[in-house]
């Protein structure tokens, strides 16, 4: 039996994570939950229903997406960077029969896996709060994977370009934070000027929100196929770019 080359790379990261799994999950869970509960109940008490659901339910879907995005991004930036640049783990792997494609694909799938853990952890809490509506909620799991995959791939592009950890702050302040605000995580995008809402609608986070929010509310998402294809296309293109840039960086 021939295992694919990315698998031992993924497995290595999983083994490290397993050693610190519980604090890692709790750490990933605490911050988004505090925001969700604080804003959801505190702010939500003053708000009318949004699209027929209470604000906390609206925000719960957004929190699953934002949490998935943040976990994938953090892993593909800071953690991948320390393995690539600081610990030289990638260099060690490249001396074996594995190639750079295996390494970058392993990192991509690992960051996706970690974001899946994060998204799922929020989903479990949301379910316990009684905010899910029927078995369609199970389809949130693959939607989390697609969202995580896209952000893992995008993060790896930035990782390949980074001279140091400081560089990642720009990615958060210039891309991730604005994206969170215009993708319908905290409030519906029809509150935005039309042009900004239109831009927001194209962003990968909005694709994830467009899939996960209806599924959480118990109905099938409109244009599901378009959102799925958009996330897959983002992942594929971003991965190809990340691989090319990483090759230029490490194998010159």
């Amino acid at each position: 039996m021939n295992r694919p080359g990315f698998f031992p790379v993924w497995q290595r990261n999983f083994l490290v994570w397993k050693k610190l799994a519980l604090p890692s999950i709790l750490g990933n869970l605490a911050d988004p939950l505090i925001y969700m509960l604080g804003l959801g109940y505190g702010l939500g008490a003053m708000l009318p229903e949004i699209g027929g659901q209470p604000y906390i339910a609206f925000l719960a879907a957004g929190t699953i997406c934002a949490s998935t995005m943040n976990a994938a991004t953090f892993e593909a930036l800071y953690s991948s960077f320390s393995r690539m640049h600081v610990q030289k783990t990638w260099d060690a792997i490249l001396n074996t029969p594995l190639g750079l494609t295996d390494v970058v694909a392993g990192e991509l799938l690992w960051a996706t896996t970690k974001s899946f853990f994060s998204g799922c952890a929020i989903l479990v809490v949301v379910t316990a709060m009684g905010l899910t509506n029927g078995p369609l909620a199970l389809l949130i799991l693959p939607a989390i994977v697609l969202t995580g995959l896209a952000f893992a791939a995008l993060g790896l592009i930035w990782n390949a370009l980074a001279p140091s950890y400081d560089f990642f702050m720009y990615y958060f302040t210039l891309l991730i934070t604005p994206m969170t605000l215009i993708s319908g995580v905290f409030f519906p995008t029809d509150q935005l000027p039309g042009w900004l809402a239109a831009i927001g609608g194209w962003l990968p986070l909005a694709q994830g929100v467009a899939l996960i929010r209806p599924l959480l509310a118990g109905h099938w998402p409109a244009d599901a196929l378009i959102h799925i294809m958009a996330l897959l296309a983002t992942s594929a293109v971003a991965f190809a770019i990340a691989l090319r840039l990483t090759r230029r960086r490490l194998l010159k």
Partner: peptide, 26 residues
């Protein structure tokens, strides 16, 4: 390959370093 600068895996024990590296060779 024994590289010029050590790039052992700091998160693992000695035995785990060997195990994980063996997996890279299939």
């Amino acid at each position: 390959v024994v590289p010029q600068f050590d790039n052992l895996d700091p998160d693992f024990s000695c035995a785990e370093n060997l195990l994980v590296f063996g997996r890279y060779f299939g």
